[in-house]
Design a protein around this nucleic acid. Structure first.
Lengths: 328, 328
DNA sequence: TCAAGGTGCTAATACGAATTATCACGCCGA
DNA sequence: TCGGCGTGATAATTCGTATTAGCACCTTGA
């Protein structure tokens, strides 16, 4: 169309104007005009192959990207990711083609498309350790949404500071006069659980109080029995839904939350639940996390020196109605 | 390592064993062994460059892809699209970089990245006619979610059969004994509105009854006055939210839905609304539409002969509580 | 002995953009 | 007239795989 070579188009497209290469302004304009007319876009795959970037960010989730459940936990992360990507002029590639093997999606498989994108945002409760290790080892640019332990090397992440947030909740309970607390949840496994429990233990340790831990493998009714029997007056629940179940059982017994039992929710619901109670606790800055994850990733890609690649964001306390001083 | 050529490795890797190409079983084994030893994986980027297509499907929405609002109308479409893409082994490229001009997103602009994907799914209430025409003219593979009129050529779509569903609703109202109906809504503009109105008119025409049409530019109170004054006993509402508003005003006047006025909702809420009433009407098969949209698109791309590129899916009737025979 | 046909593999090329060495041209000064 | 130099653009190569035409070799039958 313009009578120039492919090389010239490439140079114009990339705005190369440094000393080594020159394009006459007039030619540049002609090429740009043709690009506009035809809607030409450089093939991202070819761009990648030629060892450059394509301004595509991969998004890999261990759960469906558009989950069907209401009150979806992952949605706000994605909102943040999209907003950030839009601001940076990047498109998002949802790696939906990753096949499910043994009940979970796999990043690495025979037709893994990970490298199609410049980098990748990982999302999910528990990322596979082996896959994480391999990502680190092979030097793929990526960032995890949610703190991750080292996996053969430091893992870039944007996480929520569950430890501090949980410790704050413990102090709130102590300030309100509680002295017999319990932690309801796994307290181990995924980093997000371990961090909460660590914060819980640390805060109670400082106060010189025992750190009671209730597993989740019992029925809410049995659990309530155990708590009451032990004289527990405030429960920190790892999983919002468990708190709802506990409150429901308590109500059935004629007990009142928080008059008879205070319940503190350590984060937002990850499973759809409905409850009339507004729980005291904290919120995970999900949108902000998605937002910063993209920032960290683009920072990695551009090798921006000052970029912190491991970030913990503060959680937002929620006053709610489920914390009250214990009965005398 | 094995002393064979790159071509042979490629053939072994892809398990090519059809008539045109042959590999000695012994050689095949030797190559496979070497692959196993070295952990070699074909570079996905080069793979795609050679294959000339991406297995990437673009998703263009005229609204944000991950909307922040609750009760989001577009979410189920995206769920379906994702499920289908996953099944077909395609990745989804969210064309979030499209800029907003004059209040709406534009497909065609200076830095249009449409061609990054093999094809594109379009989502939105009303797609721009000019842009649609250009897509058709330039031969871009795409499919619209929602029926579209021809735009210089047939537009591939997967739509909901609003006409039939609306006609069914009219018949329900007639069967219940209503004879003075009204249609509340635009009844024109976007195809989805025009189709509803067409179904409404057709069904009433068959019954030999007048097709009363109420515009939406009045306050719910004025609207209610007009309806009652005309002796209307059943209203078909194009927009769910308008039905809610009408019911609310009626309640404020001491009227009861459906005892004093039946209301039929022609589809799901497109704006977040809350109502205690479960409206009689129909649901749009949104997930199926997303699902089939991807099917149609991949059918277009593969040039599968028998694929219908214009599909209308039936809507699902909802019994609800807002239809009852008129008084006396 | 030689053509015909089958077998197993490879050389060469395409894919589409990025990059670099090089070339053609015009101008200026000696 | 010629060499040197700045300008502007391009030919050629690269990335790693998929694909195809075709080559060398072997067997078979007449």
């Amino acid at each position: 169309m313009t009578g120039v070579s492919q090389a010239t188009v490439s140079l114009v497209l990339n705005g190369r104007d440094d000393g080594s290469v020159r394009i006459a302004p007039e030619t540049r304009e002609r090429v740009l005009l043709a690009i506009r007319d035809t809607g030409y876009v450089a093939d991202p795959v070819a761009r990648r192959l030629a060892a450059r970037h394509n301004r595509i960010l991969g998004v890999f989730t261990y759960e469906p990207v558009f989950p069907a459940g209401t009150g979806d936990f992952y949605h706000p992360f994605l909102v943040g990711i999209e907003e950030s990507a839009e601001r940076l002029g990047c498109d998002l590639l949802l790696l939906t083609s990753a096949p499910v093997t043994d009940g979970r999606r796999r990043i690495f498989h025979d037709d893994n498309r990970l490298r199609l994108a410049d980098g990748c945002v990982l999302l999910g409760r528990s990322l596979d350790r082996d896959e994480l290790g391999r990502l680190v080892a092979e030097g793929h640019p990526f960032v995890s949404v949610g703190r991750r332990d080292d996996a053969g090397g430091p893992v870039p992440y944007v996480g929520a500071d569950y430890a501090t947030a949980t410790a704050d909740m413990v102090r709130r309970a102590l300030d309100a006069g509680h002295s017999r607390l319990a932690y309801l949840g796994q307290g181990a496994g995924p980093e997000s659980h371990a961090d909460r429990f660590a914060g819980y233990r640390a805060a109670l340790g400082t106060a010189g109080l025992p750190a009671r831990h209730e597993p989740t493998d019992r029925s809410p009714a049995d659990l309530l029995d155990a708590l009451l029997h032990a004289g527990v007056t405030a429960v920190m629940v790892e999983e919002y839904a468990d708190g709802v179940a506990l409150a429901t059982v308590a109500a059935e017994r004629g007990l009142t939350v928080p008059a008879d039992l205070s319940i503190l929710a350590l984060g937002d619901p990850t499973r759809p639940t409905t409850s009339d109670l507004e729980f005291t606790g904290f919120r995970i800055p999900r949108r902000e996390m998605g937002w910063q994850a993209v920032e960290v990733l683009t920072g990695l890609l551009a090798a921006v020196p000052g970029t912190a690649t491991q970030r913990l964001l503060p959680c937002q306390p929620v006053d709610g109605v489920t914390l009250r001083p214990p009965r005398h």
